[in-house]
């Protein structure tokens, strides 16, 4: 593994080894001294062309806990606003000797281009590209599921678990990455969304779909182990995908009534940031079943694992 661009590139064993390493990283984060010398002298650049709170802070914390040097770059306030291209920015980073570039970009495929165009030598980690993929989010979701449902047993997968992903699938890179990763790990995925918010070609995805959230939470597709709510991405919506926010909320929002229909152990997940009152009510978001804050904490451990796996033994040209 040289880059992490898509969860589709991960085999079951690779995915499990990332989760196992993340488990050990999480253990180090419960110690008094959290900083490890593992990536001393390596440089990690956070290249963010899109706004982000969680992901950028999480990658920064992960790199710093492993003693790497971190350079933060955001498109706002940089030469990008003067019209600098991705290539020229990449060449600048190469000249500075970046060992890893964590990139978020509004255009799908930008990290792939960065990894394969020969502009930089370092390893590329996709931190979200357009409506394509967000692999570390899917890994931290899988880690959260495994730690809650399988007690984070090393080597365990999610075989036989059933996860519903609800909401704006069309614009969601989180949904894409999760469908691929969770299926690789043996879980079943049900996508629930209005027909307008499901992408073309959904029939080829390795999952089932439904338009009816009440049916799915009630066990219409089998008992659920987790419900993952997606954010309605208004900034990417250039047309009317549903009549009104109120109608969306009534048909596809997670509230106390729907939560009560779920099995006892089922988790409520959300990648954040949430639109409280739209796709999820405060009652659901703040309930004890909600893993939303836990997901953020797990994000640091998972990203530490990813950086460790990609940056150790780099000269061999092969990792996990």
């Amino acid at each position: 593994m040289r880059h992490l661009l898509s969860t589709a590139d991960l085999s079951r064993d690779e995915a499990i080894s990332i989760l196992d390493v993340a488990g050990q990283m999480a253990a180090t984060q419960r110690r008094e001294i959290k900083k490890l010398p593992t990536l001393r002298g390596r440089t990690v650049v956070n290249l963010f062309y899109e706004d982000s709170t969680r992901t950028r802070i999480s990658f920064e914390a992960a790199a710093k806990r492993l003693s790497a040097d971190v350079i933060n770059f955001s498109a706002k306030g940089s030469s990008v606003s003067k019209g600098e291209s991705l290539k020229d920015t990449a060449l600048t980073l190469k000249a500075m000797g970046a060992d890893a570039v964590v990139v978020r970009h509004p255009i799908s495929g930008a990290p792939h281009r960065l990894a394969n165009a020969g502009w930089i030598d370092g390893t590329v980690v996709n931190a979200g590209d357009g409506t394509h993929e967000h692999p570390t989010q899917a890994l931290l979701d899988a880690y959260t599921l495994r730690s809650r449902l399988e007690q984070d047993a090393p080597g365990a997968d999610l075989k036989g678990r059933r996860v519903a992903i609800v909401g704006d699938v069309l614009h969601s890179r989180v949904a894409r990455s999760n469908v691929r990763l969770l299926t690789t790990l043996g879980a079943e995925v049900v996508l629930v969304a209005p027909p307008t918010l499901l992408p073309v070609g959904i029939g080829d995805w390795p999952c089932s779909t439904s338009y009816d959230l009440d049916d799915v939470v009630g066990g219409g597709h089998g008992d659920l182990d987790a419900v993952m709510m997606l954010r309605v991405q208004r900034e990417r919506m250039n047309a009317a995908f549903f009549p009104s926010a109120r109608e969306y909320s009534r048909r596809y929002g997670l509230d106390a009534r729907r939560m009560a229909k779920l099995p006892e152990h089922a988790l409520v997940m959300h990648p954040g940031p949430m639109n409280r009152g739209l796709e999820i009510t405060a009652e659901a978001a703040d309930s004890p079943r909600s893993t939303i804050v836990e997901q953020v904490a797990n994000g640091v451990a998972v990203r530490m694992a990813v950086l460790y796996l990609l940056l150790s033994g780099q000269s061999e040209g092969e990792g996990a």
Partner: peptide, 21 residues
């Protein structure tokens, strides 16, 4: 006591699994 993350040869070595401490 797992020492993997404190090794000075991680850069040259291929991926090492981390054991529990």
């Amino acid at each position: 006591l797992d020492v993997t993350m404190h090794r000075d040869d991680l850069r040259r070595q291929a991926f090492r699994t981390i054991a529990a401490t």
